[in-house]
Amino acid sequence: MSKTNPGNYFEDFRLDQELRHPTPRTVTQGDVALYTALYGPRFAVQSADSFAKAIGLKSAPVDDLLAFHVVFGKTVPDVSLNAVANLGYAQCRFLAPVFAGDTLHTVSRVIGLKENSNRKTGVVYVRSIGYRGEQPVLDYVRWVMVRKRDESAVTGEEQVPKLGERVAPEELCIPAGLDCSRYDWQLAGSPHAWEDYQPGEKIDHVDGMTIEEAEHMLATRLYQNTAKVHFDQFRQGQEKLGRRLIYGGHVISLARALSFNGLANACFVAAINGGRHVNPTLAGHTIYAWSEVLEKAELAGRRDLGALRLRTLALKDQPAAGFPDRDEAGKYPDSVVLDLDYWVLMPRRA
């Protein structure tokens, strides 16, 4: 019996299978520093202990997406080591902020399977929950295309889960102790509050950021994401694109960081309703982003805080001034690489 782990192939998965993922990960200030170096996020709550304490938190939490990537990374050796591509996300809720020093682990359950018609691959749907001890901090669904080991292998029962269009506003979690009545708009870097945004509004985040080969590999290693498509140029050189694919979460973090210019007070990501990586991204591409406000929601019992539902599109090698998007037939231009639908929490002036 081999002592090395070849990873699971599509035919290895079964409906309702539980996967307890190794290894636990303690998030450190070093992780936060490297994350900042890679993406340059500037949101005040996550940047300064003094700012976070002024609004009721014990210290600056780590970036919500850093927590997401760590929880996600734990799942890769069991779920997507032999992936062709990660396809999408849904029903993701950020249940509690994560702080430096917290140790996270992840448990997943297979909730759907669908073999592709080529019989070379299949799509695996999993619900993963990230825990701090016994407290869940993140809960999400993702689906990923995974290779088969043997094209002739008989696979298990098929099922495609029904996923809701969005997380309902009443299901959003607010960090314990948060009090935005003491929010310092000047230090946050923008005067624009929840009241200033309206459904249908589009925001060009203006700035672009070019991805270097070393950066995306450093980032993926930071999350202990071991998917072969991100690292092994020898193997990828024999595939259609001939290049290492950039982890989709790397693009999500870039788009979130770029969104500061226009959404500086979107201080927490509360939920991801859905996300699609619609075109591949490679080193050398320059990422731009724009956002549309889809919906506003008041939060029960809160006069200091509201929720915005946003749709952010990331583009490669095309500035966002013209808001490139799907055509009438629903086809994306080649420049669009990410379409992300999510909720953020934003302070209110009232």
Rank of each mutant, 00 (worst) to 15 (best):
M1V: 06
S2E: 11
N5Y: 14
Y9Q: 01
Y9T: 12
E11A: 03
E11T: 13
E18K: 10
E18V: 14
E18I: 14
L19D: 06
P24G: 13
P24W: 05
R25V: 15
V27P: 09
Q29C: 07
G30P: 00
D31A: 11
D31E: 07
D31M: 07
L38Q: 08
L38T: 03
Y39G: 02
F43P: 12
S47G: 10
S47Q: 14
A48E: 14
D49T: 12
K53G: 03
A54D: 15
K58M: 03
D63T: 01
L65P: 08
L65I: 12
F68C: 05
F68H: 15
H69R: 03
V70P: 01
V70L: 11
V71I: 14
F72Y: 13
P77D: 06
D78T: 07
D78C: 00
A83N: 14
N86H: 13
N86W: 03
A90D: 10
Q91T: 08
F94K: 02
G101E: 04
D102R: 02
T103R: 04
H105T: 13
V107T: 14
V107Y: 01
L113D: 12
E115V: 11
N116H: 08
N118R: 12
R119G: 06
S128G: 05
I129L: 06
I129M: 03
R132G: 04
G133E: 04
L138D: 03
L138V: 05
Y140L: 05
W143Q: 06
K148F: 01
R149M: 10
E151Q: 10
S152Q: 11
A153N: 07
V160R: 12
V160D: 04
L163T: 10
E165S: 13
E170F: 02
C180T: 15
S181C: 04
A188W: 02
P191L: 07
H192D: 13
D196M: 07
P199D: 07
E201H: 09
K202G: 10
K202F: 00
I203P: 06
D204G: 02
D204R: 00
M209Q: 11
T210I: 02
T210L: 11
E213N: 09
A219C: 11
N225P: 06
F234N: 14
Q238W: 02
Q238T: 11
K240T: 15
K240A: 11
R244C: 15
G248R: 03
G248D: 04
G249V: 03
I252R: 01
I252G: 01
L254C: 12
N261I: 06
I272M: 05
N273R: 01
V278R: 02
V278M: 01
T281G: 00
I287R: 00
A289S: 15
A289V: 14
S291P: 03
K296H: 11
R302E: 01
L305C: 09
L310M: 10
T312Q: 05
T312V: 10
A314F: 05
A314L: 08
K316G: 09
A320E: 09
G322K: 11
D325I: 03
D327I: 13
A329E: 12
G330D: 06
G330Y: 00
L340D: 01
Y342G: 02
M346S: 08
R348N: 04
R348V: 10
